[in-house]
Amino acid sequence: MNNHFQAIILKATGASALFEIGVIQSLWSGYGKIVRYGLKGGTMPSVVVKHVDVSSQGRHPRGWNSDLSHQRKMRSYQVETVWYGQWSHSCDSACRVPACLAFESQGDEVLIVLEDLNASGFPERRSSVTANELANCLVWLANFHATFMNEKPGGLWPTGTYWHLETRPDELLALKDTALKNAAGAIDRKLRNSPFQTVVHGDAKLANFCFSRDGKSVAAVDFQYVGGGCGIKDVAYFIGSCLNEDECQRKEAQLLDVYFLALKAALKSRQKHVDPDAVEQNWRALYPVAWTDFHRFLKGWSPGHWKINSYSERLAREVVAQLHAAEQEIA
């Protein structure tokens, strides 16, 4: 890291010196890394630094290397700085996110200095979750979506999620499932035409949630694909990141009940001027559509992916058939 960026960290934290504790992870396609730094002096023991350095980029792990892919990633880092600079302060303890201490761009580099959630009581990560932990994440999503209900996503992605159709023409072209390919536009329109739009996290997988030691509290990280949309897209994607196909099918109704109960309470407490029952009716009906939207991306991007299973295929077939029937009625 260059001296200028080191000085920014020291100034933001009031520390006299910093030292690297360890790399948390490398960024996708070698675009930099996320590093935990210890601090000497100042008001906190450590910070997490997201350091984007395009000059160090490597090869995409699944072979998707193109100018469009590069521009999407660079835009995602710009969006994340806007998120932390203009939006994240609206999140309270019910949808906890790390505080942003500083951010700066210089040439091909971006620096985001964040609160270390490990030091703030969220040191645990999960590769699998208990029923209560899964529910706590759904409650986080409900509060997040309620917080930004009917907000225009200024500076963020107009349509959030990294698999959004408009940003993934290459993957659509590669899709071999003709019926799903032909329905892709209608699926996207169905989601965009929901009268209840909010801000979605955009990559709300289990790996992006941080847990307290007892699993009762959660926080979320990684806001590169935050933007507009109906919240059920986050819900479908999150559930798919936690459960296998049998569990997805068996627990679908129960998990949606947990989410919508929390969403209604959050909408009421935040005094949002929407009908909570109407939101539930609309978004619950869109759950299989949102699931199919991600399934469409996945089948084009990585046809052999483990998430392409019988549950996903069944939902997709049902959604495509319903959309086709609706089109026939109009015709």
Rank of each mutant, 00 (worst) to 15 (best):
A17W: 09
S128Y: 08
V279C: 15
K33L: 06
S302N: 15
V113F: 13
F223L: 01
L156Y: 02
S29Q: 10
L18M: 08
P276R: 14
Q281G: 09
D277M: 08
D246C: 07
C95N: 06
Q254D: 13
N2W: 08
A142Y: 03
F103S: 12
L114F: 05
S88F: 03
S76C: 04
L206W: 04
H4R: 15
I308L: 00
V97L: 09
L180N: 03
A99G: 15
P45I: 04
A119E: 13
S29M: 03
G155N: 05
G14I: 00
A12W: 05
S217T: 05
L27Q: 07
D277C: 09
K307Y: 09
V110C: 11
G202V: 01
H273S: 14
L173I: 10
V226H: 10
G300F: 09
R62V: 12
G14K: 04
H305I: 01
A131H: 12
I21G: 11
V82M: 11
I21S: 15
F294G: 03
E327C: 10
K205R: 10
L134E: 11
K299C: 13
L68Y: 06
Q106K: 13
L191R: 00
N182L: 13
F260I: 04
G231A: 07
R75K: 15
D277N: 12
H4G: 09
A326R: 14
A17K: 14
S55I: 13
L206F: 01
Q328D: 11
D234Q: 05
T198I: 02
C100K: 00
A325R: 14
V79E: 08
E20W: 11
V129G: 06
P303E: 06
V320F: 08
E245P: 00
A316R: 11
F294M: 12
P153N: 06
L191M: 02
E104W: 09
E280R: 01
G14T: 04
F103L: 11
W140Q: 04
M74L: 13
V97Q: 07
D108I: 02
T43E: 14
I330K: 15
F211A: 06
A220G: 05
E104C: 06
V199R: 03
H305N: 09
K33P: 03
R96Q: 13
W283T: 05
R126T: 00
K307T: 15
T292C: 01
S46W: 01
A179R: 15
A142N: 02
V289K: 12
H201A: 04
E104F: 07
L173W: 11
T159I: 15
F196S: 02
W283R: 02
R250I: 08
T167I: 09
S241W: 01
V52F: 08
L315P: 10
V47Y: 05
